[in-house]
Design a protein around this nucleic acid. Structure first.
Length: 807
DNA sequence: TGGGGATTT
């Protein structure tokens, strides 16, 4: 759909007066400043420049200013993308401050839900997702004369898509300058990607301001000691080693919450255990967990330096998203939970894996920011050397349905030909199309359907978008908007390690025994009521917290909900004013979740997976579900994730009949054992219906004539006429029937007497007799009767057999 | 019996 440019084009300089440029100063202590002439020349001479700057180089804040000094950002914007919202806003603030201008005037930022740019600004910070979203209304990115993609080495889905998009766009935008910033090791790959005529894009390396980091390898198990030393023992020893090396905070990288809890216990036990206080147990030493699910307050503790030594136990959140200040020592387990997507089973996996060399070096770098640091790796150097150099980019670890949907909707042509930095394998693309077909978003030719085009307009996962489209049709939009928003954000329910039972108790009031999805609706109503009657933000926050709800995540949920509700409003969809039924809600959810259905084959005993799902996968209900112990025969799950086991999370009971309705385009039907039904007077068969291999019904009787009329006619003649199984009331009205039966009986009796019991009336002869007379379309008793009455008007004894025909 | 971290028309 093409809208008039005046509406779709983002604010450009045509209508706004540029703010007067402030003087641009470059802090001389930043390494980038010293190289600014060289960088500026490279930008002027090349469409694409790769800038490698390690932490502390100043690239993020100074590059936009170098562009500004070059006269860019005057007629069009300098766009500058960051992987995270928090970074986009804080970088904008910092640059605005350095230019001594109010935020928004010369430097603005735009992230989801917040737009702090004014017409006339020169530099716009944004998340890479925002720039990607803008390609929908501004395919040439005409609002920009310069685009800086920062932190490209993070290789998120958005970044990889953006790098492909820019590569394709550049020939059509010869005036556009693109700057990619990256960690040094990835530079060559990006340079080659943006090369022209066999010549790679220029790379400029800017040193960082990292202090040297000493790497020490301390594997959990030494070759010669075959004892049962565990990872936790190794962590305790490594922390001791750090403590002996001198003062300073320690950052320990662990794969997840569970390991963080174990490590905290091990460290506490070690400090207070029988062996006496360890060197790490200086007075007031603090052990601080750090992971994303932690409440804001708990995370805050990490940023408030205390007097005593702190030991921070962190997940990957501390690798890129959060910078823990003042770290002198890093202890690296070399492990992380990594999300992957299994094309074979079509489930997500979240399993502990050894991290790449690049990630290990990033972790080590976290202790060299304030002074020389020490990184203790709990594996040996040979182990490090044989690890992959890079972490697989997200695009090679994800379902591609959303990427394909967006590419189709932007008209970017063949997915296989798109210039990805690392093209996904063909089977991954095929799998993405499979999911889109399951959602009815593409047709047999893999072209977008009207549903697909609508899906592409919704800023949510295609599965979730599909629920919304179905809800519009099932009059369940009010409930499903709440559920869809909830499924798009992190669970607002907190479950702190030290208060799990209390949290579960607080959340129990939202539970619905038939559907975890409906607990989101109950929770929504609870929260909405408190927002409506709030006395103060403080009180509201306290009330949420006392119910173990994260205020931050509740806010995100409400923001996503209002964004989706606004889009629904723009599309003219109407919410239901009366509550939708369980069936209406879950028919809608099923439209997006047909691949996540399960059938219970075993009673749950926690040893074998009780449910079988699509393509024969077997899974457990997640123990956090209200249905975990009493889920029904048929369930649907919001997601299937393989962690320690394959778990289905967020469950609801469903009826198998709903699957036939919602999954009509996927149901495979197989018919077998066609047979004559005397009372019904027709041929019946049994139907076996499957959805993704899951048996919906195994032996449902169906009238068979519409599937195979020819075979039905054969069976009708043989069973009803030759063998005499015509329904009685039809037989009584048909004199030929009694006549022919009697004749056959007489002949049989005669042949019996003549001691030739092997020779009976030849069924084939009788069959041929009827077959020659009865028209092809007759295949059941009723059709036969109608034909016979007409035919006998002309020839009354048409169907009467003669004795010699049978002998 | 229990999930790393981000992002969006």
């Amino acid at each position: 759909m093409q809208a008039p440019p005046a509406i779709t084009r983002p604010a450009t300089r045509a209508t706004a007066i540029s703010a007067p440029l402030p003087p641009i100063a470059f802090p001389e202590e930043l390494p980038v400043s010293a190289r600014r002439d060289e960088i500026a020349r490279a930008i002027e001479a090349n469409p694409v420049v790769i800038v490698c700057g390690e932490t502390g180089s100043g690239k993020t804040t100074q590059l936009p200013k170098i562009c500004l000094a070059l006269g860019r950002g005057r007629d069009k914007l300098i766009g500058h993308t960051q992987p995270r919202r928090i970074a986009a806003s804080s970088v904008a603030r910092r640059i605005a401050q350095e230019l001594n201008t109010p935020l928004g005037e010369v430097v603005g930022y735009k992230v989801r839900f917040t737009d702090h740019t004014r017409p006339g600004a020169a530099i716009k910070l944004m998340t890479d997702g925002i720039l990607l979203a803008e390609t929908q209304s501004d395919p040439l990115l005409a609002a920009y004369d310069t685009i800086i993609v920062d932190e490209a080495h993070e290789r998120s889905l958005n970044i990889d898509f953006l790098l492909g998009y820019l590569k394709q766009l550049l020939p059509r935008r010869p005036d556009l300058k693109v700057i990619i910033t990256s960690a040094t090791i990835d530079a060559e790959r990006f340079a080659a990607h943006f090369g022209t005529a066999g010549k790679p894009a220029p790379v400029i390396n800017v040193s960082g301001r990292l202090y040297p980091v000493e790497i020490r390898y301390r594997p959990v198990k030494d070759e010669d000691d075959a004892d049962d030393r565990t990872l936790m023992d190794a962590i305790v020893d490594a922390v001791d080693e750090c403590a002996l090396a001198g003062p300073g905070d320690v950052l320990v990288f662990l794969p997840g919450e569970r390991e963080i809890r174990e490590a905290a216990e091990a460290l506490r036990k070690h400090r207070f255990g029988a062996a006496g206080p360890s060197p790490a147990a200086g007075p007031g030493t603090e052990i601080l967990p750090l992971y994303a699910r932690l409440s804001a307050e708990e995370q805050e503790r990490v940023f408030k330096p205390a007097g005593a030594r702190r030991i921070v136990l962190a997940t990957n959140v501390a690798e890129t998203s959060l910078t823990v200040p003042g770290i002198r020592y890093v202890v690296d387990t070399g492990l992380a939970r990594v999300k992957r997507y299994s094309y074979r089973n079509k489930v997500e996996q979240l399993q502990v894996e050894p991290i790449s060399q690049a990630a290990a070096n990033q972790r080590a770098g976290r202790c060299g920011r304030v002074a020389a640091g020490v990184c203790i790796r709990l594996y040996d150097e040979a182990d490090f050397a044989k690890r992959p150099k890079f972490t697989d980019p997200e695009i090679l670890r994800s379902s591609l349905a959303a990427v394909i949907l967006r590419m189709k909707s932007l008209g970017l042509g063949d997915v296989r030909a798109f210039p990805f930095v690392e093209p996904p394998p063909a089977r991954a693309i095929a799998d993405g199309y499979d999911l889109l077909a399951e959602l009815n978003a593409v047709d047999e030719d893999n072209e977008l359907t009207p549903i697909g085009r609508e899906l592409a307009r919704l800023p949510v996962d295609p599965r979730i978008g599909r629920m919304l489209l179905a809800a519009r049709d099932h009059h369940a939009l009010t409930e499903v908007l709440i559920i869809a928003a909830a499924l798009s954000v992190q669970d607002p329910r907190e479950r702190p390690l030290e208060a799990q039972a209390a949290a579960d108790q607080a959340h129990r009031k939202f539970a619905d025994e038939k559907s975890d999805f409906l607990s989101f609706v109950k929770l929504w109503n609870f929260v909405a009521e408190r927002f409506e009657h709030k006395k103060s933000n403080r009180k509201l926050t306290d009330e949420l917290k006392s119910n173990f709800l994260s205020p931050r995540r509740v806010r995100e949920w409400r923001e996503v909900h209002s964004q989706l509700a606004a889009i629904a409003g723009e599309m003219g969809w109407r919410g239901n004013s009366t509550p939708a039924t369980f069936e209406q809600v879950h028919l809608s959810l099923l439209a997006g979740l047909l691949g996540n259905v399960g059938f219970k084959t075993l009673d749950a005993d926690y040893r074998e997976p009780p449910y079988v799902g699509a393509r024969g996968i077997k899974f457990f209900p997640h123990p956090g579900s209200a249905l975990a112990k009493k889920a029904g025969k048929w369930i649907v799950a919001a997601e299937l994730v393989e962690t320690t086991r394959l778990f289905a999370r967020c469950l609801a009971r469903i009826e198998p009949e709903w699957l036939e309705q919602v999954g009509a385009h996927l149901v495979k039907r197989h018919y077998f054992e066609p047979h004559w039904e005397k009372r019904a007077g027709h041929v019946a068969a049994f139907e076996r219906a499957t959805l993704h291999g899951l048996v919906l019904h195994a032996r449902r009787p169906v009238a068979y004539s519409r599937f195979d009329p020819k075979l039905c006619r054969e069976i009708f003649i043989r069973e009803a006429l030759v063998r005499g199984e015509l329904p009685d009331e039809i037989a009584r009205r048909a004199p030929f029937f009694a006549h022919n039966r009697k004749l056959a009986a007489e002949i049989e009796a005669l042949e019996h007497k003549s001691r030739r019991p092997d020779v009976l009336v030849d069924e084939d002869l009788v069959h041929a007799f009827y077959d020659a007379l009865i028209p092809p379309q007759v295949c059941d008793a009723r059709g036969f009767e109608a034909w016979r009455r007409e035919a006998e008007k002309a020839t009354p004894r048409l169907l009467f057999l003669e004795r010699e025909q049978l002998m």
